[in-house]
Each structure stands twice: as C-alpha cells, then as structure tokens.
Amino acid sequence: MTSTVTVNPTAAKAAISGLTLRYLVLAGLIVLASVGFSLANENFYSLVNIGILLRSIAVLFLVSMGMTFVMLTGGIDLSVGSNVAFAGGVGVITLTTTGSAPLGFLTAILAGMAIGTINGIFIGRLKLSAFMVTLATFALARGLALVIYDATSINVSDPTFLWLGGTSWGNIPVVIPFVFCVFVALSVLLYRTPFGRNVYAAGANFNTAFVLGRRPERSVVWIYALSGALAGLSAIVTVGRVSSGQPWSGLYLEFDAITAVILGGTSLFGGRGRLLGTILGVLLYGIIINGLVLTGTNPYLQSLIKGMILLGVVLLDSWTQRGKAA
C-alpha cells in the first residue's frame, strides 16, 4: 500500500519479466507434479481422470479469480467457502419451490452477491479490516446455509440446474469451457476497462487513488460483490457436480483459493498480480490436492501439507522480494 502509482518503465519491464519467470516456474512445477503423481498412480494420466481433475477444481478456478480481484486491492475474502454453501442453498430452495432453474441460477448468484456486498460496504465504506469482516460473514453465511438446508442435504434432479456442473461433452466437462469464458470476461474487465484500472489503483495506494478521484471505496464494494457473485456461480457448479445441495459444501474453499492466488504471484499487499498467474496457481495446487486424494493420503496429513504449502509460498515470496530490494 505504500508504493507509488506512477510506474517507471524499466521497473515495469522488470516486474513483467519477473512474473513471466514465475509463470514458467509454475508451468514447470505443474508438469513435474503431474509426472510425479502419474508415477504414484497409473490412473492419473488417463483422459477420464484429467476430466475429473479439471471438474473438481472448476469451482476453485471461479472462486480464485474473484479472490484475485480482492487480493489485488490488498484485501481478503474468508467468506467465499461459506458463501458457496449459502448461495447454493438459496438456489436449490428456489428451484424446489418454483421449479424454475433459471430463477434458481439467478437467486443463487444474487445471494452470493448479497453477502459480497455486505463485505464490500463494511470494508470499502466503513474501512474495517477485511479479514475481520469476512470472518463474520464466514460464520453468517455458513449459519444461513445450515438454516436453509435444516442441516441436511437436498437432492436435485432438475437437468437444467445440473447441466453446468454435471454434464460432459465426451471427456470434457461442460464447466471447463465455461470457466475459460469467465476467465476471458474477467480478463477484459481487469485489463481493458476503467474498473480494472481502479482495482489496481485501489490496491497500489488507496489514498492516492482517492485523491485522483478514482473512487476506490466504491470499487472495493463492487470487487467484493464480484467475489460473492463468483461464489454464487461456484455454488451452481458445486450442486451440479454432486447432484445435491449440501450445507457443508465449500468448506475451507477460501483457504485453497488464497493459497492458489498467492502461488500465482499475486501480492498479499495488493496492486500486483495477474489472472493468468491465478489460473496456473490453481492448476498446480489442484493437481497436488487431487494427487493427495488419489494416493489416499490421511486427510489430517493433507491439512498439514496445505498449511505448509501456504506458509512456504509466502516465505519464498518474502525471501525473493527481499533479494530484489537489496
């Protein structure tokens, strides 16, 4: 938050090549991780498994892209996992009461956006710390999800509602091209619109952005609303994938998303990062997690490894940043 908004051209060039280097390293690690797990489990490389893998991390892709916007402003959104359960609950209940899948889609996304907007108002307008506000909505959204579902899951059979998360074209799940479309749309939003420039400005230096009339407080509200809307979208995919709405879906999803985004090179302090990095980060992280599940690793060991990955990446980042500053 302390760096200046004006960017000196050579520094910008260095930063881009730094990011390119990071993307190359990530791509290398993705190859390495997949080779490693394919040696451990011969099913890993089958086309079917790649389809399953991509489908299982589709939600992580969506949520992490929203998280990238949030973290570009120097914020954090701990509520997305709970929000997926809550928005899914609203969507499923709407579907079962009205029988209309489009209405279910709409209410799911609006419900996700509602939680996101609450976050945005508290963080952007009231200037309260993001982790505290989203910790409250983390509890609130999970609680609401439990209330909506009455703590049990609801089976869904409506083919339209399940289409996005459940259908495949051959070996390719429908959701993969869909995620790609969202990626393109969000890239346009981030790199080609004034809104996108405001995102970077708000993250690089909130006060300067304010003085320049970029209305960072307003951008922040919209960014959290966007993150919430993507959680709503993820809810639809989640329900489609398992053919039921579950009150505990999306548990710890926010943690996975934060790790993937940091892995993808987005700065914890805002203002620096790209969506492409997040895509690579999700791929690598997803392959690792998926591999751990496939090899039957103890879930508690998985938790430990996840925690160590996050801390390791953050440590590595701070170490390389330090090297650059010296």
Binding site: F255, L304, K306, G307
Partner: peptide, 11 residues
C-alpha cells in the same frame, strides 16, 4: 496456515 497445520497435527 498455522490453523491448518494445527488441525492436521491434531489428527
């Protein structure tokens, strides 16, 4: 990350 490590270790 400490939260997750603690959860993992406790199991």
């Amino acid at each position: 990350s400490a939260l997750f490590m603690a959860q993992g270790l406790s199991g």
